[in-house]
């Protein structure tokens, strides 16, 4: 009869690049890159919709008047830094150094949460100015684009948080390492989208 096989949780020696070491991990990484490709097109459509509708303010504040650039700049640097810390976490995986992995991914989660907090505060300010989801086409397009990015950030920090729990319980092994690698790919993608958001939405908005 075929037997159920439970693989051992930890491995004595983790290969230097666990994300490439087995068919399973290579599949996960490639599959995730493809998901990133699909999400790129998804965000591009939301960008296009935003660009088409950003001038339809229905008498409300325009992009030049509304956007709070200092806050956006701060949020940008926070997110960029979190992207760096996630790659330092992956470096820890490649060096089989679980402490390094935990430290840097925890920092990533904290920075991500800070970004989100700042963004929610920013949205509150805009709502006070009369710029809401239902106030105009511009409002709907803005909140959909930036809000979708924000929900991706939320999903990301939740995901990495869950993986950190798995890491504490089961250690760094062929099962947890590829998952963290893939999560960091996701996190970089989220930062890439933000690069376009601060450029196309906020900076272009300021130029007018």
């Amino acid at each position: 009869m075929s037997a159920q096989v439970e693989h051992k949780g930890t491995q004595a020696h983790l290969p230097p690049h666990p994300e490439k070491a087995t068919m399973e991990s290579r599949n996960k990484v490639l599959g995730f890159w493809f998901l990133i490709g699909a999400e790129t097109v998804l965000f591009a459509c939301l960008f296009g919709t935003y660009l088409a509708l950003k001038d339809s303010t229905m008498g409300g504040p325009s992009t030049e008047e509304l956007y709070q650039i200092p806050m956006v700049a701060l949020a940008t640097f926070i997110l960029l830094t979190s992207s760096l810390t996630s790659v330092l976490g992956v470096l820890g995986i490649h060096r089989n150094n679980i402490k390094q992995v935990k430290l840097w991914f925890w920092v990533t989660v904290v920075l991500g949460a800070a970004f989100l907090g700042l963004e929610i505060y920013e949205f509150f300010e805009y709502v006070h100015e009369g710029h809401t989801f239902t106030s105009s086409a511009f409002g709907s397009a803005f909140y959909t684009l930036v809000g979708t990015h924000g929900s991706h950030v939320l999903f990301g920090i939740t995901w990495i948080f869950c993986l950190l729990i798995q890491l504490s319980r089961r250690g760094l092994n062929m099962e947890t390492a590829p998952k963290l690698y893939v999560a960091s790919l996701y996190w970089h993608f989220v930062d890439v989208v933000w690069v376009f958001i601060f450029t196309v939405v906020y900076l272009m908005g300021k130029v007018g």
């Binding site: 919709t49 088409a52 509708l53 339809s56 303010t57 229905m58 989801f133 239902t134 105009s136 086409a137 511009f138 409002g139 709907s140 397009a141 959909t144």
Partner: peptide
């Protein structure tokens, strides 16, 4: 949710 992407009266564009 009352968004306004396609409603011309609220600045939207159905061709999107």
């Amino acid at each position: 949710f009352g968004a306004n992407f396609f409603d011309v009266a609220m600045g939207g564009n159905p061709v999107i």
